[in-house]
Design a protein around this nucleic acid. Structure first.
Lengths: 106, 106
DNA sequence: CTCATGTGATACCATTTAGTATCATATATA
DNA sequence: TATATATGATACTAAATGGTATCACATGAG
């Protein structure tokens, strides 16, 4: 199994991390900037960022003494791929439904 | 914030639960049937099913002494809704997926 | 009725998780 | 250079999580 899939799903399981993802969708931010917007310590925010990074959902650009955290849309791919499994599932159910209707008409 | 969103994300964060979801996509199953396919006790599987139910991802039909667990595609909606926030970041795969669900519901 | 089967529920355990506090290190800046 | 700023890293804690063992209860089959 793709290890990125598990890390990505786990990264999004926490509400704080989902909020961080949404914030980074609006603009790149340093750890300090993110910490300003939460009621928790910088160390806690840093841990969340590590989990998001493990999940491939963000990248970090080191700029001097700052770390610019940036959303990595590509990291969402494993999750969407997983969901696409059910695209087939839904299509099949629709096909079955169609078939049932056609049988009924005959 | 929608409480279903957190429960749904949490439900999918565990690999065993994601596998259960895929199994139930293939066919409805009782707890005993699911337990046969995992190397863990029935109690553990039951706990996973409770989490999946809390997340709105499955429904249960009680039939005599059996409990038929069934995938609830509607439960995926909060997750897909959350992802739709990021429309600007990726292609139309998500939109297609959502459309498939909605078609199925109608 | 009796008994096997399918499940619910509880207590318990080890590990992970989300958080804090604290100290160390690197880099701007006065 | 001296100091403030931005972050890394570690140790610690409480609570959540994933699992087992075990007992109780309801239902179907002989």
């Amino acid at each position: 199994m793709n290890p990125h899939t598990q890390n990505a799903f786990r990264a999004l399981a926490d509400p704080t991390r989902r909020t961080i993802v949404q914030m980074l969708a609006a603009e790149d931010m340093t750890i300090a900037q993110l910490t300003d917007r939460f009621d928790m310590t910088r160390a806690a925010v840093k841990k969340h960022l590590t989990v998001l990074s493990d999940g491939g959902l963000i990248t970090v650009e080191i700029k001097g003494r700052e770390r610019i955290n940036r959303l990595e849309p590509k990291g969402m791919a494993p999750i969407l791929d997983w969901f696409s499994y059910f695209d087939q599932f839904w299509d099949d159910r629709l096909a079955n439904l169609k078939e049932a209707i056609e049988r009924n008409e005959k």
